[in-house]
Write a protein that binds this DNA or RNA. Structure first.
Lengths: 337, 337
DNA sequence: TTTCGGCACTTATCCGGTTCAGCAGTAGCG
DNA sequence: CGCTACTGCTGAACCGGATAAGTGCCGAAA
């Protein structure tokens, strides 16, 4: 009932452990006949390499880590992470790497997790998400020496390898499109203000609005939840010079905003245009379907995983700029009435 | 720069490796003074146990596996898995267990993943989800001898340890409530017909409808996506004796159904009552907010993780019946017009 | 015929912990 | 005083595989 080891194979094949090791790893040192015999026996008795024993010899752990720092109730909200994970996964499993996942409550715990994983030799590297301004995690990880890919803008990644998309360009495209439709008062319901990508989107939004000479372009920060999205929308739509278009930082807030608008007897898109960030089935089932900034999130995760594996292999890797989100117009945007 | 080992500690403390091992593991065999000295040195030089070395001695891998068999695009759809995972996580991390996650495309690959994880000593156990009728995974895992907790009904779990909730009771409660409101024609938009929990809900639905002497109670099976939910709803609402209430098997289909109803100029809840399975922020941001069958999914995952850890520890564990989903009424249900 | 080279394999060591047998030193006890 | 029992520690084996060094053998070249 015990797991078979190379010693078992060696005994059956009538050779030494060393020969078996050479044979199983495709290394020179055994004849082809012996190699074939050993492989056949290994296959027959169902031998699997014990990764612990391999790792002990300084080999790879063949796993990478991802610690998500989000309260549990926010996690389910956005499809983003699940899609990102499945993209990471696809790439990792193709190379027989495993993904170690942990959901934590705060960044200190997150760093503790990374420290433990790295210290215990559980992972060969990790993926860092949700960069903050002046994120203390970056210098700490640099000091640890663990290979890490950062999903976020290079400006905040320090010496870590960034994988990113140009959110600023997406914001510009969106605002220019809305302005071309005739909108002069555009608002933005943004996410957490300290996240780097929020800052980048904020700045791009302000810049492009100023460049186009638009009247008012308020930005309201939220925590990404539907409730806050609804509240922000209600406040914006209640103001005297209410916007004719609102750009949301995720899909759940956009849907909440849509409901608020309909509650207030505003017609979407006649009275209010809505744009959501990240496409999801959700955006297509509501009426009207939402115009979105769509990105291929699984591909994004896949690229991050690829980069990380290259980094672990010591390959020469430079930062990767992914495609910016594409504006996909649906029924929720139109010229203002 | 090398990771410190117990040999380093032993040298510094002037004792043997064995003594250090005893001290660090809280085992008898060293004096309190020596133990304190060793712990201080370990802490000072930043020693971490190498799990590979520990695992080699037959110790635990301190990780459990979860292979999700879903196409990537369906994964993000439902918050269910993300919430389940965060619940599992919370329990695991409290006991310093890691979660190995893999997203696979089909059940054969899934079994391959489990086989590899178990064979390589990567995990101490696993969690199995999405049970099918006559699921071949159950006997295969039984044969492997890996500790596994099944999230699903005991009838399909074989000798594996099930963690489940009584979906049938929830269906009964819902239908009885709708019937009490005066509904005579209730429909159900269900999920994949081969999943065990779908079958259980199907049967309960048919039984309670028959018991209440309701006129028609069609069940339409789907793949859980918004599109299919919309299509099913459209078909149901187009039939001559269209239902006055529809119960959906998840939230995304319920929202899609709501949109379809509104598109067809039906008032919810006056013309059509809607009940969704599983609460999510989504159900609360749409208008009207949806009446739902709510369950504490993170807790559900947490219980599964607890059971699994007990099972791994060889504790005496019996199957756990969790609380059934609670019917939470909101604006989408009312007496028929 | 000797010598050298290389093939095919064995032997031994190592990785970082755990664990068991053994061994001083000391305290307890009759 | 001698015997036992216990404390506190040491030394070595062991887990499963990788790998460097060593060995025996055969064929080819000198």
């Amino acid at each position: 009932m015990r797991r078979p080891t190379i010693a078992d194979i060696a005994r059956q094949a009538g050779v030494s452990k060393g020969a078996v090791s050479y044979a199983l790893n495709g290394q020179p040192g055994v004849s082809e006949a012996t190699r074939a015999r050993i492989l056949a026996i290994a296959d027959e008795i169902g031998w699997r390499p014990n990764i612990a024993a391999r790792a002990l010899n300084g080999a790879r752990a063949h796993a990478v880590g991802l610690a998500l720092c989000r309260p549990a109730r926010f996690l389910g909200v956005e499809p983003f992470f699940m899609e990102l994970i499945s993209g990471i996964e696809a790439e990792l499993s193709a190379r027989s790497y495993a993904l170690l996942l942990q959901v934590v409550g705060d960044h200190e715990t997150e760093m503790g997790v990374y420290r433990r994983w790295w210290g215990e030799g559980r992972v060969d590297g990790a993926i860092l998400v949700d960069l903050h301004l002046d994120d203390p995690r970056v210098p700490e990880i640099e000091e640890m020496g663990m290979p890490v890919v950062v999903i976020g803008h290079p400006s905040a990644a320090g010496s870590l390898l960034p994988v990113w998309a140009d959110d600023g360009a997406a914001v510009r495209e969106t605002v220019e499109y809305l302005a071309a439709l005739g909108h002069r008062r555009i608002a933005r319901v943004a996410g957490l203000p300290r996240l780097v990508h929020t800052v980048i989107r904020d700045r791009a939004f302000t810049d492009v609005c100023a460049g186009l000479g638009l009247d008012v372009c308020p930005t309201v920060h939220t925590d990404y939840t539907g409730e806050e999205g609804a509240r922000a929308t209600r406040r914006l739509l209640s103001s005297p010079d209410r916007p004719t278009a609102i750009v949301y930082d995720n899909d759940i807030m956009a849907v909440a905003g849509l409901s608020v608008a309909q509650e207030m007897r505003l017609d979407v898109p006649a009275d209010l245009s809505i744009v959501a960030w990240d496409d999801s089935p959700l955006c297509q089932v509501v009426r009207p379907p939402l115009t979105v900034l769509a990105r291929d999130i699984p591909a994004y995760g896949g690229h991050a995983a690829q980069r990380l594996l290259s980094l672990i292999d010591g390959a020469d890797t430079r930062h990767l700029e992914d495609e910016p989100p594409r504006l996909t117009t649906r029924g929720s945007t139109a010229p203002p009435a």
